[in-house]
Write a protein that binds this DNA or RNA. Structure first.
Lengths: 135, 135
DNA sequence: TCCGATACTTACAAAATAGTCAGTACTGGA
DNA sequence: TCCAGTACTGACTATTTTGTAAGTATCGGA
């Protein structure tokens, strides 16, 4: 696929936010700038490689900005650009919807996994997060 | 990954709409019920297999409803459930954002493809679609 | 001195996702 | 009769995406 025209704005959004962790990264940056390591700790289960790869892509796409403090050992922070801010805003209703239907969706996903005949390891439920994310 | 708790509502949304064509399907169904073949024609570039696979998943997840007219040759329609409707609504601002930044995002994607050193076959630009989709 | 932290990079392997192509069973039109 | 259309299924392959594990260079603290 080498096309660059979108049937619907959603396609365009997906072109930017497509990637397992990107929505989460944008979400967490909506609360202000963060260091790489902070993001790694807060975006549960990302591998270092994926985090950095996605951060680089989001930076290249102008969604976030990389601020290098030129220190040694390295100190780098990321923050949303205006472009990224506007995206994050539009993400909010969706996030709220997801939070609101959290339990229902969890049930759906569990059902799917049951049907795929795999074992489910239930985790202690964590309370759904608000928008914007806590400081 | 066998977890079913979400860090953020976005994760929950992605659990439902994750899949290359699902947002598009939901988008096109926001304009009313559609036959399988109609969707195939309107969701550009979907293969029959993927369309049907995604339709089935969305049906299983309660986002859309399958209506079988029990005719021969087969006549089946799909439409949004209330759950799906509420999702589609929250998708609208995102869709508008994507439409608004259509050209910019197209440039971003093209730049990415250039950097990946692949050939780009430019297509005639089609006008961005509105929300809700044309009937 | 050794360890851990900083922000990355790279090679490689695994998994998820998507795609092609053929086949099913039936009808209506040329 | 043959072909196209209906909605789908299944085998097989290809591509993309994600993950694992190691390495780089430097600093500060125990």
């Amino acid at each position: 696929m080498t096309e660059t025209s979108f049937q619907c704005g959603l396609e365009a959004v997906l072109a930017i936010l497509g990637g397992k962790w990107k929505p989460l990264i944008v979400y967490h940056l909506a609360g202000g700038s963060r260091r790489t390591g902070q993001l790694r700790r807060v975006v549960t289960n990302v591998s270092e490689k994926m985090l950095i790869q996605h951060l680089k892509e989001l930076t290249d796409d102008g969604v976030i900005r990389r601020i290098d403090f030129q220190e040694v050992p390295p100190h780098v922070e990321y923050e949303l650009t205006d472009f990224g801010q506007s995206l994050a805003q539009r993400l909010a209703p969706l996030c709220e919807w997801g939070t609101h239907h959290d339990a229902e969706i969890a049930r759906i996903v569990q059902k799917r996994e049951r049907e795929r005949e795999r074992d489910i390891s239930p985790l202690a439920p964590s309370s759904p997060r608000s928008w914007p994310p806590p400081g």
